[in-house]
């Protein structure tokens, strides 16, 4: 995201609404109509990858199914191939053996790509933080994360909210600056 402001308070930085206002009112010179159109298109047709390692995956399925119906928000078709997916919802624990696979899946996705860490396990290791030898404590050690959704498992509503946060984030994007998809050590987060 191309916001780099010197005289903005740290607290405001965490506040999404200030950020959005700032963007809209001329913080970024390049925010043009083209940006608006592209972001509108992108944010309303996010295709997730069918990637579920454990319990959170069931809640993700439930979100996609009849009652909660993902598709209302444009996060429409589950894709089985990473090459066709825009967002990878990491639903479940990532263990040492799985981490290289996840990284490869992420690398195979085409830009622009986004990551949602769903559930306590993907956020921080969750219930498997202590005393275990095979769990990665937070998926942000492996891939950069855009939105964190806490919960064990998060309710479908929480996932929907997280997706909407991601859409908000996409709407702030500009084609003038390249998106950072390589993990540069900074965590790119949206506060939920």
């Amino acid at each position: 995201m191309g916001v780099r402001i010197k005289n903005m308070k740290y607290a405001d930085f965490q506040d999404n609404e200030t950020l959005e206002l700032f963007e809209k009112t001329g913080g970024n010179v390049m925010l043009t109509t083209i940006d608006d159109v592209i972001d509108w298109g992108r944010s309303n047709s996010i295709w997730p990858l069918t990637f579920a390692t454990s319990c959170c995956g069931i809640e993700m399925m439930a979100t996609g199914a009849s009652r909660h119906d993902f598709a209302r928000f444009g996060i429409e078709v589950y894709r089985a191939s990473p090459r066709q997916a825009d967002v990878i919802v990491v639903a479940g624990t990532i263990v040492n053996k799985m981490a290289p696979v996840l990284k490869r899946l992420y690398d195979q996705m085409s830009d622009p790509k986004y990551v949602i860490a769903m559930g306590a396990c993907a956020v921080s290791g969750g219930p498997f933080f202590y005393n275990t030898y095979h769990v990665i404590r937070g998926v942000d050690h492996v891939v950069p994360v855009d939105v964190y959704i806490p919960g064990c498992p998060p309710r479908p509503e929480a996932l929907l909210y997280g997706v909407m946060q991601l859409q908000r984030k996409i709407k702030l994007e500009t084609i003038a600056k390249e998106r950072k998809t390589k993990d540069d050590g900074r965590r790119r987060t949206i506060k939920l």
């Binding site: 040492n96 933080f129 202590y130 005393n131 030898y133 769990v135 404590r137």
Partner: peptide, 9 residues
């Protein structure tokens, strides 16, 4: 023992 992977409580 595994100092890297195990966080003892």
């Amino acid at each position: 023992t595994d100092e890297v992977n195990i966080v003892e409580l």
